[in-house]
Design a binder for these strands. Structure first.
Length: 564
RNA sequence: GUUCUAGUAGCUCAGUUGGAUAGAGCGUUGGCCUCCGAAGCCAAAGGUCAUGGGUUCAACUCCCUUCUAGAACACCA
């Protein structure tokens, strides 16, 4: 839609013999004056050594007489040189017709690419807690946005399954003489924190665990048996949580799956003279001359010959190249891993077979408590996800008497909406404060508010009996006009969400659209509408708006309950 | 210590390549149900955009100072 406005402006600029490349039209920040604005007159004025008001006025005049004049109801230039554009009813309704009839609301689709997206990243043998919420929610949403925008997407959970924690847990199991068949999730949940804290104070124990990890990697049969069982038990639990969140993956690979690629990766590294020894470890130098901060080398093989996470991450890129030939690989991971991925990415770019893959680090912020430190329960523990879901459900039920009658299915969808919307409304890069009470409210920028609005509006849409050809070029008041203008902005929002890998722009748009729909609901009545033309127009308008809400909620991986 | 990120209303946050009067939500105050869901809507109050300088016709936005907070900084992931 913006493109058409740009074309109209380009035409005017060309006729005035002014430079007409890179035309920027933005949504007005003075909605009382106009829908869109063009601020280029200032730069043109400087370039041409003229008065900006003069330039602005000549553009305005040209637009008013040009071939695209019917796009606009009003074009004006206001001192010191802003060009204000107000869309005509005809243009608005024409665009709306296209949104209704063309696939995917006539959104412009980018070039198709093969993209691997790596998110989730749960660690095997470590209990899932609130910290695992973001990579799952943000990653799933970005995946859905990419798919919607026509990309060929492969999602991989990339489990952390071959690191030191495996050695620690196996050591603990051996110490306590636990039979492989007796390993269950409860045991693992308790064992990992115990071993981890013991290793922090006991150097000898840590060394031992590290050796077990190394031998596991080398194929020690007993350790492999333990590993397989731990993987099985842990995966089952991780899957259960992801199922509840409706998060799914094409690949359930882990660090261990990259292991078989290490020999050929090593060969390529050696052939290109990229590996060197440093303090008995094998490292890849990734520093650059203009680094402000010294970037340490990527440790490829530790001095005890064990492979570390940099190795498996590099081997995973290598493996993905061989199996899927991706154009891009996206990593939805904790912001704090920034340096690590800088090292891995640089190493990958030195490698002939992977250097052409574009690697994107999509770091997300921490979920904090009210004290702005990583979220903990009152007793000081990191809360488990099961408990969190249960709490959200209870808080929501308490808000209204009738909520007790909601089905479990609907309640689970609402819990998902509460948690996901609260997360996704924030920019993924930033930390946010976890406050279930606030997230569960039905007013404000919350999931329940969106769901409520949707269900409320959905009920007043009459059956649509007339096609879009019967839409009149008529806009009736401020409320329906506001909604039309908001809907026309969808394309722009989707481009931002896609290019910026930014679910938050969709979440914010959803909220703004819902506010407008509630205002419409309040001031207009769909029942007993005398004016038949108005009824047709509004039916289509509300139908389009609710369809868009459905689509966008799906992109945020939020499902709609049957009632609430 | 070095590097990076952040500091906007009482609280939580938008403000994406510099544009007009810095916007929302929560909270506070006051209004609106004999018509489709009041879990809603409308309105008001609330700001030295951390600080001091600079660049520009124009700075919350770009550059530099200082202060404050958080994060990362070679064998854990």
């Amino acid at each position: 839609m913006l493109e058409q406005l740009q074309i109209s402006l380009k035409d005017a600029l060309e006729k005035l013999q002014l430079p007409s490349d890179n035309i920027k039209i933005i949504k007005s920040n003075r909605p009382d004056l106009c829908d869109y604005q063009y601020d280029g007159a200032f730069k043109l004025a400087k370039l041409m050594h003229k008065n900006p008001l003069e330039i602005g006025e000549s553009i305005t005049e040209e637009l008013k007489q040009g071939p695209y004049k019917e796009y606009y109801q009003n074009i004006s230039c206001i001192a010191p040189g802003f060009v204000n554009l107000t869309l005509s009813n005809k243009f608005i309704i024409d665009q709306i017709k296209l949104m209704i009839t063309k696939p995917k609301y006539n959104i412009t689709m980018p070039k198709k690419e093969t993209i691997v997206i790596d998110y989730g990243g749960a660690n095997v043998a470590k209990p899932l807690h609130v910290g695992h919420l973001r990579p799952a929610i943000v990653g799933e949403s970005i995946k859905r946005i990419l798919k919607y925008m026509n990309q060929s997407v492969i999602s991989d959970v990339h489990l952390g399954d071959y690191g030191l924690q495996m050695g620690q847990v196996i050591k603990g199991l051996l110490e306590q003489n636990i039979a492989i068949s007796n390993i269950d999730i409860k045991l693992l949940d308790n064992l990992y924190p115990l071993m981890s804290s013991r290793c922090k104070i006991d150097e000898e124990l840590k060394k031992e665990c590290s050796m077990i990890t190394k031998e596991l990697q080398d194929g020690n049969e007993l350790y492999q048996k333990y590993f397989q069982k731990i993987l099985e038990v842990s995966k089952k639990d991780i899957k259960r949580i992801y199922d509840y969140l409706n998060v799914s993956f094409d690949l359930w690979n882990g660090e261990s799956d990259s292991y078989k690629y290490i020999p050929s990766l090593t060969n390529e590294l050696l052939a290109n003279n990229l590996l060197k020894e440093s303090n008995h470890a094998m490292v890849i130098d990734v520093s650059k001359d203009d680094d402000k901060l010294q970037i340490p080398p990527l440790i490829y093989q530790a001095s005890n010959k064990a492979y570390l996470y940099g190795t498996t991450d590099l081997a995973t890129i290598f493996a993905r190249q061989q199996n899927y030939h991706p154009n891009k690989i996206l990593y939805v991971v904790d912001m704090r891993q920034n340096l690590h991925f800088t090292q891995v990415f640089r190493a990958s770019q030195k490698l002939p077979s992977t250097k052409n893959i574009e690697l994107e680090f999509l770091g997300f912020g921490t979920i904090n408590g009210e004290d702005k430190k990583p979220f903990k329960t009152r007793s000081g523990n990191t809360p488990k996800l099961d408990a969190l879901f249960k709490e959200a459900k209870e808080i929501f039920i308490k808000q209204k008497e009738e909520n007790k009658n909601l089905s479990d299915q609907d309640l689970d969808k609402i819990v998902n909406a509460i948690i996901k919307f609260a997360d996704l409304i924030n920019q993924k890069e930033k930390d946010y404060i976890f406050d279930l009470l606030k997230f569960s409210l039905v007013n404000g920028k919350t999931g329940p508010y969106i769901l409520y609005t949707y269900l409320r509006v959905k009920k007043i849409i009459p059956n649509i009996t007339q096609t879009v050809d019967n839409l009149k070029e008529n806009i009736y008041n401020e409320q329906d006009r506001d909604i039309y203008i908001k809907l026309l902005d969808l394309d722009n929002i989707m481009q931002n969400a896609f290019l910026g890998r930014s679910p938050s722009s969709i979440a914010n748009y959803l909220y703004e659209l819902c506010v407008l729909l509630n205002a419409f609901y309040e001031k207009n009545h769909m029942n007993n509408l005398e004016d038949k033309e108005k009824k047709v127009n509004w039916s289509h308008l509300l139908n389009l708006a609710t369809n868009i809400i459905e689509t966008l909620l799906d992109l945020l991986d939020i499902q709609i309950p049957s009632k609430m």
